[in-house]
Design a protein around this nucleic acid. Structure first.
Length: 425
RNA sequence: GGAGAGGUGGCUGAGUGGUUGAAAGCGGCUCCCUGCUAAGGAGUUACAGGAGGCAACUUCUGUCGAGGGUUCGAAUCCCUCCCUCUCCGCCA
């Protein structure tokens, strides 16, 4: 959520910034609503002060011996009633206007950072750096071809269980997924991250707090009979871990690593990535999440990205780092680095992690603040995948494929998997 | 799912209609005292929003789980919802 005050006092700055996202909004109405709400608040609180004084006056006089039925008391009551009526009239207006204001504010995305490059869509994203040498060759297979040969997952049977875009991992596939999750959690924990295994069902307040609602309701699965949704990312529950809290400054930064399955409808992606592990309704992800002091978030952003990169490096998977342009930023982010892993079978880089600085955007929606001495202020939040597990498995299969049909595993996975390679059974 | 109890400040815990944002204790912070430590003394210690001021700050409003209601006045009375705990049932 954006700062209401900023919209009130400098709407053109906000509008210009949103325009960098390709969003052309007229903020004049919102500005008007906001200042009207403020006026009503002043009027109401003045009246309430008057009412409070009448109440105190009555109490005082009764204490001094006035009879409850006397004229002086009756007059005060009359006056009190009058004030009360006026207050409730204003309150009614105020409530309506605040509701509209809140609704509109929740629909606006975060402002891109000054550092975020201009651009319209993903074609304008900037490559920052590369790591590793992409494997190339004529006979390299796609990961689903390798998986089929090694019997790693069930696709058609999964549609029977659930739908298309679900997968059932089996045999070495199931074991490798488990190994990857454990490896990632251990790696991050060893660097001081606190491990979290959050609920997978989250309520509307949590989804609103991290920015998925109200705009992206159609992207999540909902439980019909409850105010609960299947979480699209651990970012949601972890944000709400500290919703409506004030975290002492000495406790910052808080660094969490959370494993969770993630559920997404992938609406509007019909026909894309229909095979394999790239785009599923359910996938596993290990997520990094930081709560930091506002002045630390820029540095933290670089660090969280490095922590995500470390996973790829340990796994010996070539990748590149892309900085998203303003037009390609996610709703809550003000600056984002994507990590794209090299898939030799697909002969392409594919997104495997997205590391974003949300600054105070989620903190304002979720009311998460920090405090030193008397000063309370919103803190900043950052998130990054470390990593998307399904896509990691795809990358491992494609990058580790051998001419004899086996898949060799990176050194770091061997203790977790219990073998040096995946081999035909 | 059934029955009961309860939700008050960082914590414990008073408060059943009148200047109560809330006693007391603990904890935290500041200062004083004291060779050190321990002990002691004084003060201070919620959040949000607004108005005024460059600012320190002053002031107003709201908040005792949430939302309504009664009343001149509600932490206190009434209604609805949410949550927690105990017992029973069920269950991984």
């Amino acid at each position: 959520m954006l700062d209401q005050r900023l919209i009130r006092e400098n709407p053109s700055l906000v509008a210009d910034s949103l325009a960098r996202r390709g969003l052309n909004v007229d903020l004049s109405t919102l500005q008007k609503i906001s200042s009207h709400q403020k006026d009503l608040e002043v009027e109401r609180s003045n009246l309430q002060a008057k009412g409070n004084n009448i109440g105190k006056e009555v109490g005082q006089r009764l204490k001094n011996g006035a009879t409850p039925s006397s004229k002086e008391i009756a007059d005060l009551r009359l006056l009190g009633n009058e004030v009360k009526q006026k207050v409730s009239l204003i309150e009614e207006k105020e409530k309506a206007i605040s509701k509209t204001l809140k609704e509109e504010l929740l629909k606006l995305p975060n402002l891109p950072s000054i550092e975020c490059p201009d651009g319209k869509d993903e074609k304008d994203n900037k490559e920052i750096r590369r790591w590793g040498i992409p494997k190339r060759g004529k006979d390299l297979q796609n990961h689903w071809e390798i998986a089929e040969r090694l019997d790693l997952f069930e696709t058609e049977r999964s549609a029977k269980i659930a739908q298309s875009r679900f997968v059932t991992l089996i045999n070495q596939g199931a074991r490798l997924e488990r190994a990857l999750i454990n490896f990632m959690l251990d790696l991050h924990s060893s660097k001081g991250y606190k491990e979290v295994l959050p609920p997978v069902l989250v309520n509307s307040a949590s989804l609103t707090g991290s920015g998925q609602l109200p705009k992206f309701a159609e992207e999540s699965f909902r439980c019909a009979d409850d105010d609960l949704w299947l979480t699209p990312t651990a970012e949601v529950p972890v944000t709400s871990l500290h919703r409506e809290e004030i975290i002492p400054m000495k406790d910052l930064p808080l660094k969490y690593v959370a494993y969770s399955p993630c559920f997404r409808r992938e609406a509007g992606s019909y026909g894309r990535d229909t095979r394999g592990l790239i785009r599923l309704h359910q996938f596993n992800k290990v997520e990094l999440y930081w709560f930091v002091h506002p002045e630390e978030s820029k540095a933290a952003h670089l660090e969280i990205t490095k922590d995500a990169e470390a996973v790829l490096q340990e796994l010996e998977l070539p990748y590149r780092v892309i900085e998203l342009c303003a037009g390609d930023l996610g709703f809550s982010a003000c600056r984002t680095f994507d990590l794209e892993v090299w898939l030799p079978g697909a002969k392409a880089f594919r997104e495997i992690s997205s590391c974003s600085n949300c600054e105070a955007f989620q903190a304002r929606r979720s009311s998460i603040r920090t405090k030193q001495e008397k000063a309370t202020q919103l803190l900043h939040t950052l998130n990054g995948s470390g990593l998307a597990v399904g896509r990691t498995m795809a990358a491992i299969l494609e990058n580790g494929q051998q001419s004899d049909g086996s898949v060799s595993l990176p050194q770091c996975l061997i203790p977790y998997f219990g073998d040096t390679q995946l081999s035909p059974e």
